[in-house]
Design a protein around this nucleic acid. Sequence first.
DNA 1: GAGTGGTCTAGACCACGGT
DNA 2: CCGTGGTCTAGACCACTCC
Lengths: 242, 242
Amino acid sequence: MLEKNSSIPLYNQLIDVLIEYIKMNLNDDEKMLSEREICLKYDVSRTTVRAALNELEEMGYIFKRHGKGTFVSGLWKEMQNLSDAYSFTEQMKQMGKVPHTQVVSLEELAANQFVAKHLGVEEGERVYKMKRLRSAEDMKMMYETTFIPAYLFPDLTISKLESMPLYELFPRLYNQDIKYADEEFYASVLQEKESEKLGLPAGSACLRIRRTTYSQENEIIEYTLSVARGDQFVYKIRHSKK
Amino acid sequence: MLEKNSSIPLYNQLIDVLIEYIKMNLNDDEKMLSEREICLKYDVSRTTVRAALNELEEMGYIFKRHGKGTFVSGLWKEMQNLSDAYSFTEQMKQMGKVPHTQVVSLEELAANQFVAKHLGVEEGERVYKMKRLRSAEDMKMMYETTFIPAYLFPDLTISKLESMPLYELFPRLYNQDIKYADEEFYASVLQEKESEKLGLPAGSACLRIRRTTYSQENEIIEYTLSVARGDQFVYKIRHSKK
DNA sequence: GAGTGGTCTAGACCACGGT
DNA sequence: CCGTGGTCTAGACCACTCC
């Protein structure tokens, strides 16, 4: 069942095993094996069991009650996305659509005050600025303006940009691994010029998004301003009470 | 420094102590004490230290590098809200405003199919439906329609509703502790009737929000539909790469 | 090789919920 | 009272980074 000498941590293997166990044996709100029972059944320490159970709780598979036990949550079926996906490509795939990106422009320029501030670089430093129109099945979904520091991405070209999604290009071509991305968004209406780009009437509902992406080294590797069709983007978030 | 026999868990105390230590002694990106150094300095086990450090990492105070050490993140200054607050009251306080709520209506009725589905109750079951206009310093911010199951909240009255925020009323008067809330939201524009209620022109940008709140017992205790001024609500979320 | 974070063990005591 | 999850210990070995 569990491979003790695998390169995959035991608690990680245990997660998969327990998910399988739940699916095969238990229904919603039924009582799960106790922590000590799991220790015996799979011959691991309680620390390992609790590490696995904590992740399962975060994932929504189970919930715990002090003094009573652990129970199957029955919520994991509905909660597909809850905005795990932060890339356009992933979002579209979750919506069951085929994403497409057209690179409208790519230029190298010196950072002005605004760009410098949001990319965390010095004013005057070289940066790339690109504009992209993002579609799904012939519907124009979103228009993005992205800034990235030039020194992290030498010799960036449109053909490279078009070869793969940005969030694959970062790690694969430039060894920049993403740690997390912060997004701010708010409702707005389309201005005239934007409405032309998206093929919608001016004044249509839209979502404006500002995204800052950080590398594993805690450097900002991307700052993007987006405007997205209001009728196509529904964000889902879960607020957990501590 | 740490009280070993406090009712507060050691790792929880340690979190506060370490935050203080960081603020007093370290700047951004500086190297933090190693885990084993913290063990010695505060006389606790490494398990306890790691529990505290994991929370600090989630909070954004520090980041770890395998083989190198733990470092101060320097991001905890900016990231105030990131939508931790899911109640209107908390959100307004974070924005430095004084929230006010006017209960427009409160009625008890039988759940129709729509309400039954979203509250997870049977059709025909008694539910409360309330409408509330929410303001901050004389600006009308958001209009909410809320459904809650009646059997969980016997003898609910407008005066009770007006006495405290809903999310205080749940635990304090009805012993209903909140576990988490799921929100969906998307951009839209105000319809005529809504525009009157919020005192804005029809066609103004707005955010439409659907919220489902769950109790510790995994029951739905609230379903709310909101429409909020687009120019006043900015949501922030962090997508962590796993 | 020395130091770091990552994983894991075996065992202990506590606080809570039910009998 | 017993079984549950919550906290904590002391110690072990591994994988990674840097010298």
